[in-house]
Design a protein around this nucleic acid. Structure first.
Lengths: 230, 230
DNA sequence: CGGTGTGAAATAATTCACAGCT
DNA sequence: AGCTGTGAATTATTTCACACCG
């Protein structure tokens, strides 16, 4: 009875298939989501002693059948050894390569309210290859504040920051009313992927990919499941 | 596949035909996720003047085809009027009923670090029927602190709080190392649904439903999409 | 044995096509 | 005309069954 949080990716929602995903990748969407699950399992609580892991073990650790694991992994290449399993180290590398976390991703946080500053303090990004290089806000009161080793900068600095640090990803944590227009600023500055925390759909056309985290919707889904009996 | 007849809820006067409402559990998962999208659209930026909305309008506002909207809504009953569309007010009510947000859900936040306190300050829950009635933490340093009008309480208080306020939902915002055992405490106290922010799978058997929000994974999915070209 | 890989069957979800209402 | 509801077709995803390797 485990459910993933609702991160409605834009490609899942768009009716005209404007997303450039279509041709470039023949890996099914559900598989991609599970790959990051496998990677997380391999990265965190995998005993250092084991050099090898079976599809059953891996599946058990993330709550998925062994067949599904093999199908998923078979989807990105032939990585296993019959009778043995998968080499943990090699598999990790391959997953990182496929998911593009074998490189450094520079990101900015836009909006340093509650959620924005929580993100800035979130410790798990660094180890996954994501580095937050700047924090920005529109409110003059907040500019200059220090949050988690960063000084809050004005929105006007965005294009320069993006250019200087090769920022591709922006974390959007502004109030819903401002989200759409700030998202436009971000794409205009050259940002290609937006992680949106505002509870509203933002439309950036083909300029960027959007993934959303909507806390209210997550709670709603949970309430639905809990209340299913009545 | 098409369903049994069920009694019409009196709170909702359906104009046409016989009033049939699908039983709660055979609604496809993807549909449920989109229902909360529709509801969000109807609740937020819907002009107050319009008493009626078409599947095309609704679809456009959330980025989905009109056919899909009709299929989804048809899944929970016959709610529309041919040639007219859907009554906004009635549809809202029906969606809330199906998603179980037509009642009040009391929730607690466990763990008042960065994410926990951001959640406590998050303004959007109240209007959706979720009320956070308590904040708890294991660390003695934090107990007694005031965060967003709540006083942080010790974990030992959990069972009493759950019982007193009929708490069904718990928001789990503790470090990954503690998540599994704290989750067990929560279910032991009677909590039936857990929204998990720790980047780890938590296993509570059949005692509760779990929905997870994993920020690293969300970023990873985004990076994958952005990096798809290379 | 305990493993993986994979075509084939089964199931789920989306899209199409169109009947019928206002 | 504009709109909903829905069986049928299509497409996507999961599960099954089994060949084959160490």
């Amino acid at each position: 009875m485990q459910d993933e949080g609702s991160l409605c990716h834009s490609s899942f929602a768009t009716p005209p298939y404007t997303c450039r995903v279509a041709s470039s990748s023949n890996i099914p969407r559900p598989t991609i989501k599970r790959l990051s699950l496998y990677l997380r399992s391999l990265e965190s609580h995998q005993p250092a002693g084991t050099a090898t892991v079976s599809s059953r073990q891996l599946g058990q650790s993330v709550g998925i059948t062994d067949v599904q694991v093999r199908k998923d992994l078979g989807n990105i290449g032939q990585l296993g050894q019959p009778g043995i399993g998968y080499q943990v180290e090699a598999l990790r590398g391959e997953l990182r390569r496929v998911l593009k976390t074998d490189r450094e991703w520079n990101a900015v946080v836009v909006g340093v309210g509650n959620i924005g500053s929580a993100i800035l303090h979130y410790p798990h990004f660094g180890s996954k290859g994501f580095r937050i290089v700047a924090a920005l806000d529109a409110s003059p009161d907040r500019i200059g504040q220090r949050i988690a080793a960063l000084r809050v900068q004005p929105m006007a600095d965005l294009p320069a920051i993006v250019a200087e640090h090769d920022v591709r990803i922006g974390i959007l944590a502004v109030p819903a009313e401002a989200a759409q227009s700030v998202a436009a600023e971000m794409t205009a500055a050259g940002i290609q992927g937006i992680l949106n925390f505002a509870p509203i759909r933002i439309d950036v056309g083909n300029d960027a990919e959007v993934a959303s985290v909507d806390l209210s919707r997550s709670l709603e889904q949970l309430a639905y499941q809990v209340g299913i009996g009545d």
